[in-house]
Design a protein around this nucleic acid. Structure first.
Lengths: 152, 152
DNA sequence: TTTACTGCAAAGTGTTTGCAGCGAT
DNA sequence: ATCGCTGCAAACACTTTGCAGTAAA
């Protein structure tokens, strides 16, 4: 479905927040919105730099941080050493991460929001974010080394 | 699953794996098992160093990595910049993380393993780890700044 | 005795920051 | 014309690694 409503132009987002609209910011947001999900800072940098070779990595970090602050981007702490970023608006989803090849598959589950409700009721917390990461092995990686049987 | 290893002496754990038993390793494992959960490497270092002042931070990292490899310790990627570590054997549990004060509360939920089952069935993955992190604000932090009404 | 392990310091990642010039408003 | 934003390089926090000495087996 087209999601114009969700995907406001960068201009609007920044303006509303009283920030300046710069080509770098529009570019980075565009990379996040149209590229694959779960890009890390360096991937964002490389993709954006193809379109604006003068772009610096610091600007990428500063912009990611700003967009996170503005609620346009979510920073994810997956099972890796660096962070991944993803444009918001694609709806709630969770991650299935292959420890063999690093592939990240998204999934949704009604159970996740049940956990949220359950814990808000019992803990007194207000829950603003739900993160579910399942780690394991995809069928390809299983096939590649699983034929030998489960390791002790 | 196998939980016979709940609190084996460090000696047994290391021996079985063909590694040497050193005082540093036993100490670090003890700190993890008897201290609060979710320590980061530096906290482990500080606590262990109180008991053995000659201990080095590198040894802490090397030992954490080894214990992870041996399945004695789990490395967690919470909503912070560094990793947290936790001795295994305390049973499956998940995290409620306060974005205000950093407090981490553990909880359990039968729904989590339902998500695992659901996804194993539909994705073809073998899931070896389930991580559920809820982020939000604890009641104390809500009280401290929530009096002004809910922020957008 | 052998050689895996340790402490130290130096190097490596990923990320942040100070500063002078640039450019959106 | 302002002053927020950028690029650059240097600084940073966390983690890993090379090496020579130490200690478990």
């Amino acid at each position: 479905m087209r999601d114009e409503a969700l995907t406001e132009p960068a201009r609007t987002v920044l303006r509303t927040a009283g920030r300046r609209t710069t080509s770098q910011r529009a570019l980075i947001l565009d990379v996040l919105r149209h590229g694959p999900a779960h890009l890390d800072a360096d991937e964002v940098y490389r993709r954006a730099k193809e379109r604006d070779p003068r772009l610096s990595l610091s600007t990428v970090y500063r912009t990611l941080s700003l967009l996170k602050e503005l609620g346009q981007v979510e920073e994810e702490h997956l099972a890796e050493e660096h962070h991944h970023y993803e444009a918001k608006g694609s709806g709630e989803h969770y991650h299935l991460i292959c420890l063999g090849c690093g592939q990240v598959v998204e999934f949704t589950s009604a159970l996740a929001s049940q956990i949220k409700a359950e814990q808000e009721t019992s803990s007194g917390y207000i829950v603003t974010g739900v993160h579910v990461d399942l780690t394991g092995y995809c069928s390809a990686c299983r096939a590649a080394k699983g034929e030998l049987g489960p390791r002790a």
